[in-house]
């Protein structure tokens, strides 16, 4: 049996992480590391899947064939991202279907942003620009996270995500430079999505108790506030470039800090949305539940057929 005790194993584990050596599925790892990662990765996966819905519902109403095709491709990519992530979580012992059941019951969380409605075509641009933009900011550092399968999934995701943000900004730019109706549509869209996008980065650092340990384990590479500030600095410049106004009267460039000062986030709204009281939480979860229930007979049929085929093969 073991001549190493837990402390030694934990020391060696942390040393690996500090030396940027990747942790792979069968390596020893603290139970808390495994659990935290499973939760983080599955939450990320759930977000991709739920995220298909607010955009998916505009595919049938896309205003041109080209936009219809690009939106189809984007949403398909998101499904694929969900799959890569579930796949990474499975390597830690997660059961995908059980995790999905937790999503449906409210036990598992997903990104708050997807609980907001997509009310106009312009939202397709705004989501690509802001939501994918925020996601990229979070995901690029994760390409260097300590857990091998998650890091590799992130590399794959990031390759595809940059196309998403670019095509989103292309739509925003086109509308912002378009007819008065289109300008109004995209400004209205920005007004509705700006603050929820900022909330995507999570609570302030002093309200994020688990962040320090996650940073030590390199499954989180920057703090919430750092990423949020980075996002604001980059995005405000982009908005100015296309003549759109950020809906924050307190937004101001601070020459001393070299960053934008910005207004107070409505944390009550954030908490309510996370708890399930956002504009579309129920619709999103119902849609996912229905998909699973309505598909039960299909999955059972596929299983039954596979069994029959196996039996046939054995008797030949």
């Amino acid at each position: 049996m073991s001549t190493k005790n837990i402390e030694e194993l934990e020391r060696e584990f942390q040393a690996k992480i500090d030396a940027d050596i990747k942790i792979e599925p069968n390596d020893w790892m603290p139970e808390a590391y495994r659990k935290t990662l499973m939760r983080q990765i599955s939450q990320h996966a759930h977000s991709e899947i739920v995220g298909m819905l607010p955009e998916g519902n505009w595919i049938t109403r896309a205003p041109s064939l080209k936009r219809k095709a690009v939106l189809l491709a984007k949403v398909q990519d998101e499904a694929g991202h969900g799959l890569y992530l579930y796949s990474a979580a499975e390597t830690l012992g997660l059961d995908r279907e059980k995790s999905i059941d937790d999503l449906h019951s409210g036990k598992a969380k997903y990104s708050s942003i997807f609980n907001y409605p997509t009310l106009s075509w312009a939202d397709m641009g705004t989501i690509g620009w802001l939501v994918d933009g925020a996601a990229i900011m979070n995901q690029v550092p994760l390409c260097r996270c300590s857990y091998g399968p998650y890091a590799r999934a992130m590399v794959r995701v990031c390759k595809e995500e940059s196309f998403h943000q670019r095509q989103g900004f292309e739509i925003v730019s086109l509308l912002a430079n378009g007819t008065p109706e289109q300008k109004q549509m995209v400004q209205d869209s920005l007004n509705r999505f700006w603050w929820p996008a900022l909330m995507m980065f999570g609570p302030n650092d002093d309200n994020s108790p688990n962040s320090a340990q996650s940073i030590k384990w390199k499954i989180k590479r920057s703090s919430n506030d750092e990423l949020r500030q980075q996002f604001i600095d980059v995005t405000v410049a982009q908005a100015e470039m296309v003549g759109l106004t950020i809906p924050d009267k307190d937004l101001k460039w601070n020459a001393e800090t070299g960053h934008y000062d910005f207004g107070v986030i409505n944390w009550e709204e954030f908490n309510q949305v996370i708890q399930g009281n956002g504009p579309c939480n129920k619709e999103r979860i119902d849609a996912r539940k229905n998909a699973k229930e309505n598909g039960a007979w299909v999955r059972e049929a596929a299983n039954a057929f596979a069994e029959k085929r196996k039996k046939k093969e054995l008797t030949h």
Partner: peptide, 9 residues
Amino acid sequence: HVGSLRAAD
């Protein structure tokens, strides 16, 4: 190796 997925057969 690129990842995993679920399939019936």
